[in-house]
Design a protein around this nucleic acid. Structure first.
Lengths: 336, 336
DNA sequence: AATCTTCCCGATAACGTTTGCGGGAATAAG
DNA sequence: CTTATTCCCGCAAACGTTATCGGGAAGATT
């Protein structure tokens, strides 16, 4: 790729590079006639400033690093969609990294992003991440960071999530109001933020309706692909009349496991998932879900980050933004 | 972000930047003792070379630009997953762009990628793209380009696709072998490569089994969200006994439309889709599909591109690589 | 006529890094 | 003792761009 530079223009027009640069930036101290000449020539040769040279000079890359557990996941690909929409509009590019749910890989990819001189980081923590000290170090070096979805209280930084508490509360309340009493909760790793918030919402709804919280009805699934089925079996022994599962992956796994065991949904157990799957109403049975505004979460998160980067925000307090979820009631939780 | 540079090290150790640079690259003309000093100091301060400065100097960015119609699509997010897996291993970063199926946006994003000095481009064409002349221009300027999935014959460049012909043939053959005779084909915009290949596979299977090709059984869907239903209605008037739909989106739309009209699947019509949806067997009914090896397509495509970039390949001929598809027969195409 | 502005423009340094060239000091060879 | 080698290392240029400074020429003000 041989590209034309400001030098080429200067040589061709027999002027200095400074003049070319200034003409292209429409500086007041350049003769209009000279400007015209330069601009015409530049357009004719399809000149574009070398963004790498600019980055070096300005010590900014106009690149935002996004670290997610995995791309091939409805929620994250929708969030990334939202991120890109805003980022491009505001002159930033987005580089995506996957932690594959591993703490070690997360640290590595974050280092990569930093080495690449990303102007800021947008992170959804891997479920393997217990310690965010390495992020605190970066933050102290003035690297703008915004967390989304999987956040951590141990980091003083803006965060953007769905209102997991309210979503879980609404789901549980809905199950109770449709007559369910023994509501099992299948959730993910206990230490990550969304797990705790969703569990809290679940408990709060139980309490409000005078139901006892029974920890035998709660199971934490790890990352393994084959962990869901045994957990469902476990829970079935408690003879629940409803399943509320706390993630995309678990909701699907739960549905598959229940069908495999010929458990009638919703006759024997109701099912409701916390998921952004787009074909929920084509499933058998159509699955009730709590939908997260993934696209908007991405948009808001990147907006926060750009504000940080561009220093518009004096950071009065770390914003903890919660976006409303949406309860979608379908056949899997309706009797009759 | 204040980062440490080679200059800082030079100053601290009272040597020149050249010496530091050479010491870090383990040059033979540096005193082992000096090397040790430099390397130790660099590690202690967690020095990392500024990749932007390197890019400027070496006139390469180690960035690969990926342009896809949209990220939030199972096939593409899986393909991107494959792309990243290989790219990172080989020292490249990936910047993702979305054309949103629009030709204009595709041209813009490609320009962006070029302006960003991507070392090469990995493109899946927007369905709005009829003319690839703008890519030919870039190619003539020695920019490495590899097409995947949505390719074009008008560009002499390596391409990686699923074996769409064989996949469509297998799907159609399966429908015929299960007794279907009037097989409707719902496909996408007529001019893009995968449409033609899949249509050809469909026709070839019909012919091989002595069935007449009837263009009244074929419909082309545009991009509109609400186009599928009327087309399904259209096709139903031809009283088909099977639907073969040629894309992710259409397969889902088709299933939804048929269910809405209470058309019994597979009793009245069989249904088979060309799609990578991961929950196909949880749908009602479980949907038969032709699966594309999306992850592998991404891997192979980026491998081809990196070969081009690094000049390992003298380009004897533009490789047209086809990866096998997989027919997954489920209830939507099985009677009884 | 001397000074002051105003208008344009060029030379240069800087961002962080690598590399070709040159050169001083020590050692080896004559 | 002189010359040739070897071993280390520094200087400076280069990648493409912008910003600071400075300055020449022309016109405007005393």
């Amino acid at each position: 790729m041989d590209t034309i530079t400001i030098k080429d223009i200067a040589r061709a027009l027999n002027i200095s590079t400074s003049t070319v640069s200034r003409a292209l930036r429409d500086s007041y101290e350049i003769n209009p006639e000279t400007k015209r000449l330069v601009i015409e020539y530049a357009e004719r040769l399809n000149y574009h400033p070398n963004s790498i040279a600019l980055s070096l000079k300005e010590n900014r890359s106009r690149v935002i690093g996004v670290i997610v557990p995995q791309i091939a996941n409805n929620f994250f690909s929708q969030a990334i969609d939202g991120i890109e929409a805003i980022a491009y509009k505001r002159g930033y590019h987005v580089i995506i990294f996957q932690s594959q749910e591993s703490y070690e890989r997360e640290v590595l990819t974050v280092q990569q992003a930093v080495a690449r001189k990303a102007d800021g980081l947008l992170i959804s923590l891997a479920s393997g991440t217990l310690d965010v000290a390495y992020l605190r170090d970066l933050q102290e070096k003035k690297l703008p960071i915004v967390l989304f979805d999987r956040v951590s209280k141990d980091l003083d930084t803006p965060s953007v999530t769905a209102d997991n508490f309210a979503g879980a509360f609404a789901a549980t309340e809905h199950l109770i109001q449709t007559g369910r009493r023994r509501i099992a909760h299948l959730t993910i790793l206990p230490h990550i933020s969304i797990t705790q918030e969703r569990l809290a919402g679940y408990r709060a709804a139980l309490e409000q309706y005078g139901l006892r919280y029974d920890e035998n009805l709660v199971r934490y699934a790890g990352l393994g692909q084959y962990e869901v089925e045994p957990l469902v079996d476990d829970l079935l022994e408690q003879s629940p009349d409803a399943f509320f599962s706390a993630s995309d992956r678990l909701a699907i796994g739960c549905l598959a496991a229940l069908k495999k065991r010929n458990v009638a949904i919703p006759e024997t157990v109701s099912l409701i998932g916390f998921t952004n799957i787009t074909v929920a109403d084509l499933l058998a049975p159509p699955m009730s879900t709590v939908e997260q505004p993934a696209f908007e979460i991405g948009q808001v998160a990147v907006d926060q980050l750009i504000s940080l980067i561009e220093g518009k925000q004096k950071m009065p307090q770390p914003n903890l933004i919660k976006l409303p979820t949406k309860l979608m009631v379908r056949a899997s939780s309706q009797i009759g």
